[in-house]
Nucleic acid binder design. Structure first.
Lengths: 123, 123
DNA sequence: CCTACCTCTGACGTCAACGTCAGGTTTCTA
DNA sequence: TAGAAACCTGACGTTGACGTCAGAGGTAGG
């Protein structure tokens, strides 16, 4: 498939896909004329990349760990980094769960207070 | 306390604290000479701000919701936004848990493979 | 009173992950 | 075989949350 199709299939912009290639995260075959062509596995790879980005992992780190994620084989150094990212992700989850509790307590309290007719400024 | 102390107590840079004030997130008394002075509650407020930032909430949204989080009272509009942020946080958590599973499966497989002596490139 | 450190207000710099535009080539469709 | 649509390579623009620097004034200890 060409870049446009990969873009619609993944929901990731064409620009972003080119950026991933620029960063060494996503390789592409090139046709005679220079157009990018991707296999079906590219869809999963793009989703994986997005997932790692969402976990706050940088391009450089992703570049390091991607081949290992794909092959399932890693050197001790990469393994250590993976563990580091893992604990970072765990911490992010915990922090977000804290935030969730905060929001929930506000929502619970706010509904009550609003029922009793003391609204906060809308703006 | 002055800004430096608040900075060390919270681990947030002096620049960031000034930025929070600029964004209307953190008020400060001013001494005659114009220096900022904070009460003890500022520490918690700064932590709360950081928590909301970590949840991917923008300065503008935080500014809207902060008084309501503090007073526990919100208008219907703000309430709706809070619910929106809540579900966004829930989704973030779910995504991160997915990522965690990915990382774990990689780590499990990688360790095995490494034991069998086929390491991936460290660089 | 001196000195070392803290704080102030601008104002420009940074960084990552793209967005967007220009100007040109390639591919599909009628 | 048009011409629209998709693609290409630069290259500059954007955004948010600060970093950093300059130049000037405030403050606490000896």
């Amino acid at each position: 498939m060409r870049i446009g199709e990969l873009s619609t299939k993944t929901g990731v912009s064409v620009r972003a896909l080119r950026y991933y290639e620029e960063q060494g995260l996503l390789a592409a075959e090139r046709s005679e004329s220079g157009q990018r062509h991707y296999g079906d596995k590219a869809v999963d790879r793009v989703r994986l990349i997005q997932q790692l980005y969402a976990a706050g992992i940088s391009s450089a780190s992703i570049r390091e760990m991607l081949p290992c994620v794909v092959t399932g084989v890693a050197s001790p150094q990469v393994l250590a980094k993976l563990r580091g990212h893992r604990s970072s992700v765990v911490k992010q989850i915990e922090d977000l769960q804290d935030t969730l509790r905060q929001l929930d307590s506000v929502l619970a309290g706010a509904v009550k207070s609003h029922e009793s007719g003391v609204p906060c400024a809308p703006d």
